[in-house]
Amino acid sequence: MLILLPPSEGKTAAVKGRPLDLASLAFPGLTDARSEVLAALAKTSAHHDAHAVLGVGNSLAAEVRRNTELRHVPAAPAHSIYSGVLYDALGYRSMTPTQKRKADSAVVVVSALWGAVGFTDAVPAYRLSMSVDLPGTGRLASFWRQRLRSVLDERAGDSLIVDCRSSTYATVWSGVPERTVAVNVFQQRKGVRTAVSHFAKQTRGELARHLLTRRGKPPATPEQLLRAASERWTCDLVPATSRKAAQLNVVLAHSA
């Protein structure tokens, strides 16, 4: 099983630790591309219009400045750098050692700066979105789409891919449709389903945790994933087509 997660917008910077070692990260075939984006981000972040280019407000000035020092600031495992609703719900810190090993093996985070990283890869906190048109590299979604295919195809192999990414990050790589399940979250009220945002992040994190902490073998097919998710939620499964992954729809009861 491969669980794909998006990065969090906000990140928890490491206060101590060794600096970034690009060569130590998973997917070494991405090292040159990572170095290219890292250099372009540092240059852009030092420019007077950095906030406009990166699409962030003045309140994030410290994070933009940190972008210029990413090769020198402390790095820490990705599972501790990425934070926010989804990662809080996943709750890596409260897992048992066995559950953490499962997470370390199964989870890959798709990133605008790193392309893709494993959960134990030591990275610094940074500020960069996949939607950015970065001077020197161009639109990052297009940049990474050209470079992620071979490495993630190899990583996925014959595994079931549980895709918990947001739409911006889902565009850069797609697994084989019959082995991929995209996770959607809805609320239902009076028979009408509506998509949700905040609760989608939380539910995807909870689903990832459930899959990593439940007893038994991990799901290997979309149907097995549906059964596993149905242990906790009301769900249905839209089968894959020749061009589109299966869709796991998690339906939350509306709280009146």
Rank of each mutant, 00 (worst) to 15 (best):
L20M: 10
S131W: 06
F199Y: 10
G91D: 15
P135K: 08
S83D: 13
T241A: 13
A61S: 14
S142H: 12
Q188Y: 03
V183Y: 01
G29N: 11
Q224F: 08
R34T: 10
L134P: 00
Y87S: 06
Y82Q: 04
F199G: 01
C235I: 13
E206P: 01
L25N: 10
S83T: 15
V172Y: 00
T120Q: 15
Q247A: 12
T44C: 07
V151Q: 05
L148Q: 04
L237W: 11
V196Y: 02
L128H: 03
A33C: 07
T171C: 01
A170T: 05
V108T: 13
V151C: 05
N67E: 01
Q224K: 11
R215K: 12
H79D: 15
Y87F: 09
L90A: 10
T221N: 06
V56C: 12
V176F: 10
L20R: 01
Y169N: 07
S197V: 12
R93I: 10
V192Y: 06
G17N: 05
R215C: 13
G17K: 08
K102R: 15
T44I: 06
V251T: 13
D49P: 00
M95H: 13
V123I: 15
R155V: 04
A42Y: 00
L128G: 02
L207F: 02
A156P: 00
A76K: 02
G136H: 06
L226V: 11
P177G: 08
T12Y: 04
R189K: 14
V107M: 06
W233L: 13
A195K: 14
R149S: 07
N67Q: 06
L70D: 02
V109N: 02
A76M: 04
I3N: 05
S35R: 06
L54H: 02
M95S: 09
Q188D: 08
A52P: 00
D104Q: 14
R227M: 11
R145F: 01
A200L: 03
A89G: 03
G115N: 04
G55A: 07
L4H: 03
T234M: 11
L225G: 05
L248V: 14
V37G: 01
V107Q: 02
H210F: 00
A240S: 15
A208S: 15
H254M: 06
R127C: 02
A122M: 03
L38Q: 04
N184V: 13
Q247Y: 07
K100I: 14
V238S: 14
A246Y: 10
R215V: 14
Y87P: 00
S111P: 02
